[in-house]
C-alpha cells in the first residue's frame, strides 16, 4: 500500500467515522435517558437520504405517508389516553405534537417543495420530516413500556426496525440512492488532496457534537435530560417527567439522524434497509464507551470508520465481517473493565 492510497483510505475512514460519531452520540444519549438501545436510528438515517433523493427526483417522498400514518396512530393513542383521563394539557400536547406539527410538515412536503427548489430548502424539509418521526416512534413503541428492562426495550427496538424497513421497501422501493453533497473542486493541502465532502462532513459533525454539548450544559431541557439519565426516579421526584425527557431525546435523535443521512448520502449508496448495518456500526462504536461515556463512544465510532475503510481495501467482501468481529475484543475489554452488572427483573 502506497502513502497515497493510505491517505485516501484514511480520509474515507474519517469521513464515514464522523457520521458514526453522530450515530454513537445519539445511541449513548438515547440509552442513558431511556435505557433503549435505539437500533432504528440507522433507519432514520437511511430514510433521510431516501427522502432527499426523492425530492431531488421531483417525487413526493414516501416519508410523508409514514409520518402521516404514524402521527395519526400516535394521535389516536395519546389523545385517547388523555381524553380518558380528562387531561386537557395532555390532549393539547398530543394535538400539537401528533396533530398540528406533523400536519404542517406533511402539507409543506406535499405542496411547497417543487423539483427546482433550492437544495437547502429540500434538506430543511427532509430534516423536519425525519425529526418529527422521532417522538412518534417513542410514543408508539416505547412510551407504554418505558419502565421495562433494557432487554425488553431492545426487543421492541429491533421489532421497530423491522417494521420500519418493511414500510421502507414499500414506499421507497428497492433501488439505492445517492444524494448531492458539498460540491466543488477538491482542496489541496501540501501533498494531500481532500474532497469538499470530507471536509464538510467532518466540520458538520464537529459543529453538531459541539452544539449538543452546549445543549446539555446550558439549556434547561438539556440539564433535565442529564438528570433523567442519571437517576430516572430521582428526576421524576424533582419534577422532570421521564416521558418528556424520553420525547426530547427522540427529537434530538430524529434531528441528528436526519442530518447524518444528508451527510452520508453523497458518500455511499443507501437502500431502504441500509439503516440496520449502519446503526450497528454506530453501536459498535458506542459500546467502546460502554453506552455511557460520550468521548470514548466517539473515539470508538471513528475507529469503526477507519477499520471499515482499510478493511474494504484489503478484503472488501469481508468488510462487514471484520467490523462486526471487532465487537468481540471490544466486549471482552468492556467485560474486564466493568464490574459485574446486576440484571433487573423483567
Amino acid at each position: 500500500m502506497t502513502f497515497d492510497i493510505a491517505a485516501v483510505l484514511f480520509q474515507d475512514g474519517v469521513a464515514n467515522g464522523a457520521v458514526y460519531v453522530l450515530l454513537a452520540t445519539v445511541l449513548v444519549l438515547v440509552f442513558t435517558v431511556t435505557r433503549i438501545v435505539f437500533v432504528p436510528q440507522g433507519d432514520l438515517i437511511a430514510f433521510s437520504a431516501l427522502t432527499l433523493a426523492a425530492f431531488e427526483a421531483g417525487h413526493t417522498p414516501g416519508t410523508v405517508w409514514i409520518l402521516a400514518l404514524g402521527a395519526a396512530l400516535a394521535l389516536i393513542l395519546a389523545g385517547g389516553k388523555a381524553a380518558g383521563e380528562r387531561n386537557l394539557a395532555g390532549l393539547a400536547s398530543a394535538a400539537l405534537w401528533f396533530g398540528a406539527v406533523p400536519a404542517a410538515i406533511v402539507l409543506t412536503a406535499l405542496f411547497l417543495v417543487p423539483k427546482e427548489a433550492p437544495l437547502l430548502w429540500k434538506m430543511a424539509v427532509t430534516c423536519a420530516l425525519i425529526t418529527c418521526l422521532g417522538p412518534i416512534l417513542y410514543r408508539l413503541v416505547f412510551e407504554p413500556i418505558a419502565a421495562a428492562s433494557p432487554l425488553v426495550l431492545l426487543i421492541a427496538a429491533v421489532a421497530a426496525h423491522f417494521g420500519l424497513s418493511s414500510i421502507g421497501l414499500h414506499v421507497f422501493g428497492a433501488e439505492g440512492v445517492r444524494t448531492p453533497g458539498f460540491a466543488g473542486p477538491p482542496l489541496v493541502v501540501g501533498d494531500l488532496v481532500v474532497t469538499r465532502q470530507t471536509v464538510g462532513v467532518i466540520a458538520s459533525s464537529l459543529v453538531l457534537v459541539g452544539l449538543l454539548s452546549l445543549f446539555f450544559r446550558r439549556s434547561l431541557s438539556g440539564k433535565a435530560l442529564l438528570a433523567a439519565a442519571h437517576n430516572r426516579r430521582g428526576a421524576e421526584l424533582i419534577g422532570v417527567s421521564a416521558t418528556a425527557a424520553g420525547r426530547t431525546a427522540f427529537i434530538v435523535a430524529g434531528l441528528i439522524g436526519a442530518i447524518s443521512g444528508i451527510l452520508i448520502g453523497p458518500m455511499t449508496t443507501l437502500y431502504y434497509d441500509s439503516g440496520f448495518i449502519l446503526g450497528l456500526k454506530g453501536f459498535v462504536g458506542a459500546i467502546v464507551g460502554a453506552l455511557a461515556i460520550y468521548p470514548l463512544a466517539a473515539l470508538g465510532a471513528l475507529l469503526v470508520g477507519l477499520v471499515e475503510a482499510f478493511a474494504s481495501f484489503w478484503a472488501s467482501a469481508y468488510r462487514d465481517v471484520i467490523v462486526f468481529t471487532l465487537i468481540t475484543p471490544v466486549l471482552f475489554w468492556r467485560s474486564l473493565a466493568s464490574p459485574h452488572v446486576e440484571e433487573e427483573a423483567e
Binding site: P150, L154, Y318, D320, I327, S335, S338
Partner: peptide, 28 residues
C-alpha cells in the same frame, strides 16, 4: 464467556453481530 458477566443487552447485541458476521462469512 465474553458477555455473560455484563448486562443482558450486550449478549443480545453480540449475538446480533455474530449472526451478521456468520452470514457474510459463509456467503463469501
Amino acid at each position: 464467556l465474553i458477555t455473560v458477566r455484563m448486562s443482558g443487552h450486550y449478549l443480545a447485541l453480540a449475538t446480533l453481530c455474530f449472526c451478521i458476521s456468520f452470514y457474510f462469512l459463509v456467503g463469501n
